[in-house]
Nucleic acid binder design. Structure first.
Lengths: 344, 344
DNA sequence: TTGAAAGCGCTAACAA
DNA sequence: TTGTTAGCGCTTTCAA
């Protein structure tokens, strides 16, 4: 494994100066077609690969990455994302990349706009596009300037899958359906509880619902009675009544699916009603949910690996900026967590 | 965020040359205690952080990492690991780190010894320590020379958890038990099929078995009849007889647990016997297993994310070598895969 | 005990 | 169209 050839050796072989080599490498003008071809051939032939460390050092560039994401105070689900960002920020420092979290209020479009404004000064953008229109505009802005933009957690409705890091919501929904289908006897029905549907990242909710429902449709699909309940957004007491009524009306219900992190609300209610016999399935390993998972009131939680998503998002952007790489972001596993594989 | 101070500015402020700064940074001799203290204070005060790119460039060091792992021809489970290694090798190139796969035969201790011999010339080691004694010796060798060594897939019996990337076998076993407990009616029994117990990485098998059994022990544990069957290692026809007999003898069996990747053998047999009604659970997303998962003969597979493990192992070693970092490797999720979240 | 200087592989400004 | 040169922030060697 002989050490890689460098720009200097290349110049010597080609009988030109390193300046010329540099010019053809960056296909800048000022090189005659003849020498360009000659150098190109040599580059090919010797399998020249630039030393990216030297490159980065010499270019003396400083990059900045903006992370547009709700404040973690808004909702505990954001906490681990913030941790991922912070870790990434520390790790990216050595590449002269700075990472800033520009928080917004997940319920306030205006705050998103404000944060977006601040983002425009950065070299790359990582965001949770909770507000479609504004997010689209911002994304297009970045694209127009040739700057990278990556979505995480939630994708844009027409978002490029290759510019997204996060869980496939539809697939996750199907998986949940299958899990309930396995664990709840076939003659019992399933309840889908919608909470906070209008309160934020609708797209993931939507996908998880549709995926769930899709599982029971189609020719070979298992037959199940499904009941849907649209809960209030932020009023736990109304919810309690609603759930109690439904369970009374349909005593046949054997499992409950909550396609978001608010599953602990339902868990709480089930404990009140002493109906912990029901299989309960929801999303996200937030502390409240873990508590009920440990107790057995919640049976399954789907983990989205938020910390990892955030970290990988930053890392991916850094690699674009610093190393000019363009690999795909890679997918997020749909991780089923039970009491037994809950860490600590 | 003003740009980080460098060795040069530091020298100017301290009224010494950059050579002296360098000496105290690497606490080399040849600096008077007085100036050393002065410089140290300045470093602290200005929060100096070395530019690791420049450092690495100037040190003109080339690092090499050896990956000691079975040949992928031996067993399809190794295939994705190899891919992870290859991807890592490509990505590490830019840091002047070369990665070589030193394959051995997973059934032949001598071949491990041979490969281990070759590994001693490398700067760091990533290995699957299938043969305990030899692996321990090798590991100690590396430790003695102050070189890093990391295990993946399987840990050493007394291996440091912080020097291991892989799934927690015991936890995985418990999870499988819980899954079967959920999906198989309480009055039916479970069959544990041991295949190839003596054929290789016993430690993971052992952990997965023990975890599984532990789930049904203890005061609050669910009551289940468990049946264990020790299958032959490499003789599928014997196995077929054995399974058929057991199922005949114990018609009450409702689910089967195979704590390794050979679950497709059992799947094949179940199809022969037309007993695909049984819940079947095993490990690893190898092509054969995926086939049966898609068909529904296998119900659950536990994914160990082998490609990821391998990649992260190499990356972790690279970061130690190049950047001197010492963060923990991080854990591998116990990923439950069903037909619905099988990719593609 | 200290300083000066060359050089790592590359970029970019300036000359020719 | 091409070559030359001065760095980027650090390591390392040699001289003082």
């Amino acid at each position: 494994m002989s050490k890689n050839i460098g720009i200097k050796e290349l110049a010597k072989i080609a009988n030109v100066s390193i300046g010329t080599i540099d010019r053809v490498l960056h296909n800048r003008q000022g090189v005659s077609e003849k020498t360009r071809q000659r150098v190109l051939a040599l580059i090919e032939q010797h399998d020249y690969k630039p030393n990216l460390l030297a490159k980065h050092l010499a270019s003396r560039k400083q990059f900045s990455i903006a992370v547009l994401m709700p404040a973690s105070e808004d909702n505990p689900v954001w906490q681990p994302y913030v941790q991922g960002i912070e870790k990434a920020a520390r790790d990216m420092e050595k590449f002269s990349v700075t990472v800033d979290h520009l928080p917004f209020d997940q319920y306030d479009p205006q705050s998103f706009e404000n944060a977006a404004e601040g983002a425009s000064a950065y070299d790359a953008l990582l965001m949770v596009p909770l507000f479609e229109k504004a997010a689209m505009r911002l994304k297009d802005n970045f694209a127009r300037q040739g700057k990278s933009c990556l979505c995480f957690d939630t994708n844009l409705p027409e978002g490029d899958e290759h510019l997204f890091i996060g869980q496939h919501a539809f697939q996750a929904g199907r998986l949940c359906a299958s899990l309930l289908n396995y664990t709840v006897p076939a003659d019992r029905s399933l309840l889908l509880v919608n909470l906070g549907r209008k309160a934020g990242y609708h797209l993931n909710f939507w996908g998880r619902e549709n995926g769930f429902n899709s599982f029971f449709k189609g020719k070979d699909a298992p037959q199940r009675k499904l009941i849907a309940y649209e809960g209030p957004i932020e009023q736990a007491n109304h919810l309690e009544q609603g759930i109690a009524e439904i369970l009374q009306k349909s005593p046949n219900i054997g499992g409950i699916y909550v396609p978001n992190s608010r599953v602990y609300w339902v868990a709480h209610i089930l404990e009140q009603l002493q109906r912990t016999d029901l299989i309960l399935l929801g999303f996200d390993l937030i502390p409240e949910n873990k508590k009920y998972l440990k107790r057995g009131t919640i049976d399954f939680l789907i983990n989205q690996h938020p910390e990892n998503q955030a970290y990988r998002g930053v890392e991916w952007l850094m690699q674009r900026l610093v190393f000019g790489e363009k690999a795909e972001p890679g997918s997020t596993p749909i991780d089923v967590v039970m009491r037994e594989n809950l860490e600590e």
